[in-house]
Simulated scan of single mutants.
Amino acid sequence: MSEAPNQPTAEPAAEPVVTPIDALAAAVAAVLGPDALEVAVAYGEVTAVVPRDAIVEVMKRLRDAPELAFINIVDVCGVDYPERAERFDVVYHLLSPSRNARLRLKVTTDEDTPVPSISGVFPGAQWFEREAYDMLGILFTGHPELRRLLTDYGFDGHPLRKDFPMTGYVEVRYDDAQKRVVYEPVRLNQEFRNFDFLSPWEGTTYVLPGDEKAKTS
């Protein structure tokens, strides 16, 4: 009886490689549970989207979970998407020194709905939340001192909103007659309205100082 030809043996399937950032994303999703609306890896960092009203509880869990230990608040900022009903993303950046890891956390809100302040969890967030209020008009409840931070007293509007005019609403000058600083509506001089975008080295009828050296006979 002839022997059967050798059958090729199937190689065992390679196990998927779990990178440290994927492991971190899985740990964040496990700690947040149903409060994790989305957990993904974006731009080299783990990004999680959570409900606005759960942000304080979520911050406590991320800080106190020993497998995460996000004990440092790095930044709180806002992003404006005017075309959305909830036009603002409030973005929190956390740092875990023990894991050498960062986490980006997002909630959404609109112009009128406040976001719970996390200053009771991370006192360092007070400054960042004031900046987001000043620049974008994002409201925070439970903040001990929510007032403008970078703009002047009586400033109109929020400069980082996409619909804020480039020239602003008012201009400031010192009035010699009144002996004080006054605020007035912005006035654009005619030469700024009709700027022709020409380089100063083009379209002139005179020779600029130094150009005569470049002239050849």
Rank of each mutant, 00 (worst) to 15 (best):
N6S: 10
R102V: 00
L94R: 07
G154A: 09
Y183A: 11
P123A: 08
I138M: 07
T19Q: 08
G120P: 06
D163N: 14
H93N: 13
K162F: 07
V58R: 07
D196M: 04
L208Q: 12
E11G: 06
V41Q: 10
V170M: 15
P34S: 12
S98I: 12
S98F: 00
V28W: 10
P144D: 05
D89E: 15
G210V: 12
N100S: 13
E145H: 13
D134E: 10
E83C: 03
V74P: 02
L150V: 03
E131G: 06
Q190K: 10
L160V: 02
T205K: 14
R102M: 10
E171S: 13
T9M: 10
V31I: 11
T205V: 10
E3S: 13
I138T: 02
I55V: 15
P165K: 04
I71T: 15
P8K: 11
W201T: 12
R52Y: 00
Y92P: 09
T9A: 15
G78N: 02
P200T: 09
K215G: 04
T109R: 04
D110Y: 11
Y43T: 08
L188G: 02
E212I: 10
P114Q: 11
K179S: 11
S119F: 08
F197V: 01
L146V: 08
D112K: 14
F155K: 02
F140V: 05
A13I: 12
P144Q: 04
A4F: 09
L139D: 00
M1P: 07
E45A: 12
Y153C: 00
R173E: 13
L68R: 02
R104D: 02
A25N: 01
D152Q: 06
P5N: 09
K213Y: 12
A65S: 13
E57C: 01
G203V: 02
S2F: 10
R99I: 01
R61E: 04
R87D: 05
P12K: 14
D196T: 13
S217E: 14
P66W: 09
A65Q: 03
E191T: 09
F192M: 11
R187M: 04
E11C: 01
V28G: 03
E171Q: 15
R61A: 13
K215F: 15
V121P: 04
L136P: 05
L198H: 14
Y81S: 04
P12D: 08
H158M: 01
R84Y: 09
G142P: 01
L62Q: 04
L139H: 14
T108V: 13
A125R: 01
K60F: 00
A101E: 13
Q190M: 03
E86H: 08
R52S: 02
G120R: 12
D53Q: 12
W201A: 13
R161K: 06
R63Y: 07
D176R: 09
L32F: 09
Y133L: 04
E38I: 01
D64R: 08
A69N: 14
A65W: 02
